[in-house]
Nucleic acid binder design. Structure first.
Lengths: 148, 148
DNA sequence: TGTATATATATGCAATTGCATTTACTTGTC
DNA sequence: GACAAGTAAATGCAATTGCATATATATACA
């Protein structure tokens, strides 16, 4: 493969990078704190449940969760362990590939999703939604898309 | 204090939030991987050293590092432990407040900063700088500022 | 078919982080 | 100055994450 053969990042890019790190850290810390203060589990649990809920049959393979949530394989494995212990999801065998499995959201998982949303929603509004007007928010979303 | 009395976040805000999380995670993972691949310590070490280096006398109080880098107090304490062990910085007593201390960058700390920069810079260019043109990058930086 | 290689998930162990508390001061009040 | 309350930093212990490797298939190909 060819080496990236890039130039140097501009001062603007460095500033954008620094702010990306800080803005995310600040908002995420605040959201996690709000969730915890209301007796809820970490945001990652919500993310997993939401991905599952959105699927036709409420199931996904761990590998797919890993890609969508940008988690490492071993962390997905253990996150599933913990969530399974709380009966929020369950592991099913995956017909068609004996190595794989299917993770399926349970009723309790769906209920947790519903219970968390009001807190999460309010927190998002406080720490993100209220910070920019609609057109600027759309612009931000568009620019961030280019980093993905 | 008055409750936040907010409304609900728009779909646009929710999208921006999701992308903020993912864009940051993706870029940060890539940068950390590049640093490690080149035998360097985590980004947080660079951040600490850079903050110290930028000060007149190369020193800052742990409390100040905590605020600037958005770290938790106990994590700063332990990060300083590890970096002190590698002689990248040292703890000094802080005259004027016997509870506090001063963290001071060492020559080795300054040298690490210099050695890491080429790798960090190239990584930033690959994963951030090259993704947007200059005016868009400036716009992104400006929008992110509003979240801070 | 048999064997080497690749892929999906799990796991042992070390490093890091979170959480609660401790230790040493410092400040304010009487 | 003496004592309650507050602040800066450290620390014991549990939970999470990282890292390397293991385990159980699956796939490719001689």
């Amino acid at each position: 493969m060819m080496p990236p053969m890039t130039g140097k990042p501009s001062d603007t890019a460095i500033t954008a990078w620094a702010r990306l790190l800080k803005a995310q850290a600040k908002a995420l810390d605040a959201v996690e704190a709000d969730l915890k203060a209301n007796g809820h589990p970490p945001l990652a649990w919500y993310d997993v449940l939401l991905e599952l809920k959105r699927e036709e049959n409420g199931t996904l393979r761990p590998l797919e969760l890993e890609k969508r949530l940008l988690l490492k394989q071993h962390n997905v494995s253990r996150l599933i362990d913990r969530m399974e212990q709380k009966n929020l999801l369950k592991r099913l065998p995956f017909a068609g590939d004996g190595r794989g499995q299917l993770v399926s959201i349970t009723d309790q998982g769906q209920e947790l999703l519903r219970r968390m949303w009001p807190t999460y929603r309010a927190s998002l509004q406080d720490h993100v939604g209220s910070k920019l007007k609609e057109p600027e928010m759309a612009k931000l979303a568009a620019l961030l898309q280019h980093l993905l």
